[in-house]
């Protein structure tokens, strides 16, 4: 096992552990903080893939800005009710294993073939700012511009839902 492999296993297992901890933490703030930790491990995976820019953005935007927003919301709403393991939802407890079984049935053939997947793709890009941003402003210009429309629509929506009603 090379150092690279060891780091891959460390980051991915830590990421999975954080994901599970997000789900089972009793406190919403603890859940959010485990999510930050998970984001940092994910950034580690990006670094292993030589996606430098993505790793940086992952930490700056997700672990930084977005999670701070999450924490604000969690603290503002101040959940008193503690979450429990058993919700008494029989359908959920029966359905979840079924869904997981179906997912495994779909993904098991993939895992069997994992060796073949490990072949490196034909083209390998180093994730520098230039390599990431050139397609954004050439081939994917249209979807990037449409993202601005989505943001505008979301902003209008937030203003509509959030403003005080002046007229009855």
């Amino acid at each position: 096992m090379t150092v690279y492999d060891a780091m891959f296993w460390f980051f991915s297992l830590a990421l999975l552990l954080c994901g599970v901890l997000v789900l089972i933490s009793r406190d919403a703030v603890a859940s959010a903080l485990f999510m930050v930790l998970g984001f940092i491990f994910l950034a580690g995976l990006y670094l292993l893939l030589e996606a430098w820019f993505l790793a940086l953005i992952q930490i700056l935007v997700y672990a930084g800005a977005i999670m701070v927003l999450f924490l604000f919301v969690v603290m503002l709403l101040d959940f008193r009710e503690k979450r429990r393991w058993w919700h008494g939802n029989l359908l959920g407890w029966l359905g979840a294993p079924l869904a997981v079984a179906a997912l495994l049935a779909a993904l098991l053939p993939v895992l069997k073939r994992a060796g073949a997947l490990a072949d490196a793709p034909e083209k390998w890009f180093e994730g520098t700012l230039e390599n990431v941003m050139t397609p954004v402003f050439t081939r994917y210009l249209l979807p990037v511009e449409v993202t601005a429309l989505i943001l505008l629509a979301a902003t209008i929506g937030v203003v509509v839902l959030g403003r005080k009603e002046t007229k009855p």
Partner: peptide, 26 residues
């Protein structure tokens, strides 16, 4: 013609609908 445009289009189609569905916010 690519998965990114497909995804962005679908999001633009649904995000306004979330707001419209809750337009009677009282």
């Amino acid at each position: 013609r690519d998965l990114i445009t497909l995804f962005i289009g679908l999001e633009l189609a649904t995000i306004p609908l979330y707001v419209l569905a809750g337009y009677y916010r009282r």
